[in-house]
Amino acid sequence: MMFLDTLSRFLPARSNYLVLSRFKHVQAARYKRSIKGNKPLTYEMAGPPHTIAHIKGWNSWNTCNMLDGLRPAETAIDDEFIRRFITGTWHDLIASEIIIKRQHNIIRIAAITVQKISVTKIYFLIGYTEELLSYWLQCPIKLELQTVEDRTAVVFKYI
């Protein structure tokens, strides 16, 4: 707000209005209310970004963006790759965000899946995902899955 105050002192009224309106209408990572109010949101989706570290956590846990952190850009790309790979491999099975945690050289990937396919198939996919991602990212990968009976189990609220 300090910044906006100084800004309004220098700028004419019209621009001032524009800046404020941008500030108010941030849309990123906020879900739009549906007309019928029946859009399901998970707990993670329900919190807008400023609630991270207050009521919800990060989706990627690593130290790349800290001071002297290594490979920040590559890590971001890798994370995106992992997310796309998993949502594609586990087609229509992932019911939550994919949380990627990096510790030393290990990447732990956590998610909630739906119990739609048989357990043996789930195990097959676990083995496949872990192994192929290991080959790709060249480090040990561990999947940490929880299962729910259906998607409604992870709905936090409807908007």
Binding site: F124, I126, G127, T129, E130, L132
Partner: peptide, 8 residues
């Protein structure tokens, strides 16, 4: 699980 690994 192992057969999944083999697939990879």
């Amino acid at each position: 699980q192992e057969s999944g690994r083999k697939a990879a």
